[in-house]
Write a protein that binds this DNA or RNA. Structure first.
Length: 306
DNA sequence: AACGCGTGGGC
DNA sequence: TGCCCAAGCGT
């Protein structure tokens, strides 16, 4: 197949379609040597990496992923661990509910899928903590399936290269998926590589703040380039506050428990935040979320260690 | 469909 | 500094 056969929209005003051959050739030459990309990595290893990478940068994930793979090489290994062990091993990756959901997913995989991460998107979507992105990422990256992968990086690459916009607007799941679907070659292997290449391009070249267009393999065919790289003109992006939020308080409370050998007293938890009302509310929500437990004598502990 | 959910680093 | 950002998910 020639590139012209897949570039069906290049003649439309204001749009372009990246050439899969150019993108995948660039990926072969420039992809970072990330451990979960090793050919020996199992579906389990990919699922763990994708879960850890949800909203957490590669640099912080890498050492933790290595530890997890050495300690829990199969889903059944993780399933056999306690929640407290899992939460401590998760460390400070953030959003610790991801760790509990991955723990649950490991049990499901062990008992219902023969200890092998499923390759079908629908089966993956049924797992706790696996959403539309992660399901397709595992299908594509672990099993070489043609599954459109839409993350923040891909949305940005598509916004620029295809639509000529400075950045992606608010997520529009149906349209975003259709956009990527239209870019992928028909066969599994090349589609999977194209998905990986789109993500890698967005992470390392087509970045938010300082895109390295001179190093981009598809800049010659980029609608944003051709339009003179106009600034983002969409609705302003929502800013996530952190200082003073429950998220910060919960993080501090949980950090006390991670650092302790066993149950801690309420006084130890009281010390990390001075607003008693907010503190108690966060304590309650952590208990509700199953991220901590209260012992019979009224102390607090990570789940499964008391 | 917004919103809440951790943490750390870059500028 | 404070703000923005980082391979999302569940509700």
């Amino acid at each position: 197949m020639t590139s012209s056969e897949t570039n069906t929209t290049t003649s439309m005003p204001g749009t372009s379609a990246p050439d899969p051959a150019e993108l995948t050739a660039w990926f072969d030459a420039h992809a970072r040597d990330l451990p979960w990309r090793a050919p020996t990595t199992t579906g389990w290893g990919v699922l763990v990496s994708e879960t850890m990478l949800q909203q957490t940068p590669v640099r912080r994930v890498q050492p933790v992923w290595e530890e997890w793979m050495a300690r829990w090489p199969r889903p059944s290994d993780l399933a056999a661990a306690t929640q407290a062990e899992v939460l401590r091993a998760w460390g400070k990756l953030g959003y610790p509910r991801r760790a509990l959901r991955l723990h649950e997913a490991a049990s499901v995989i062990a008992t219902e899928h023969g200890d092998v991460v499923p390759a079908e998107v629908d089966a993956l979507l049924a797992l706790p903590g696996v959403g539309t992105y992660t399901a397709r990422a595992v299908a594509a990256f672990a099993y070489g399936r043609r599954a459109p992968v839409v993350d923040t990086n891909v949305r940005r690459v598509v916004a620029r290269a295809v639509h000529g916009a400075g950045d992606a607007g608010p997520p529009a799941p149906k349209r975003d998926l259709a956009d990527v679907e239209a870019l992928l070659p028909a066969d599994d292997a090349r589609a999977a590589k194209m998905s990986a290449a789109l993500m890698e391009l967005g992470q390392t070249v087509c970045t938010v703040r300082s895109p390295a267009c001179e190093a981009c393999p598809i800049s010659h065919d980029c609608a944003w380039q051709h339009a003179g790289r106009p600034a983002y003109a969409g609705p302003p992006k929502k800013v996530q506050r952190f200082a003073g939020t429950d998220r910060q308080v919960r993080g501090r409370l949980l950090d006390v428990l991670r650092g302790a050998d066993g149950p801690v007293t309420r006084e130890q938890l009281d010390a990390v935040w001075n607003d008693a009302g907010q503190r108690d509310q966060c304590l309650d929500s952590l208990l509700t979320d199953g991220l901590m437990e209260q012992t019979q004598d009224g102390r607090f502990a990570l789940p499964g260690e008391s």
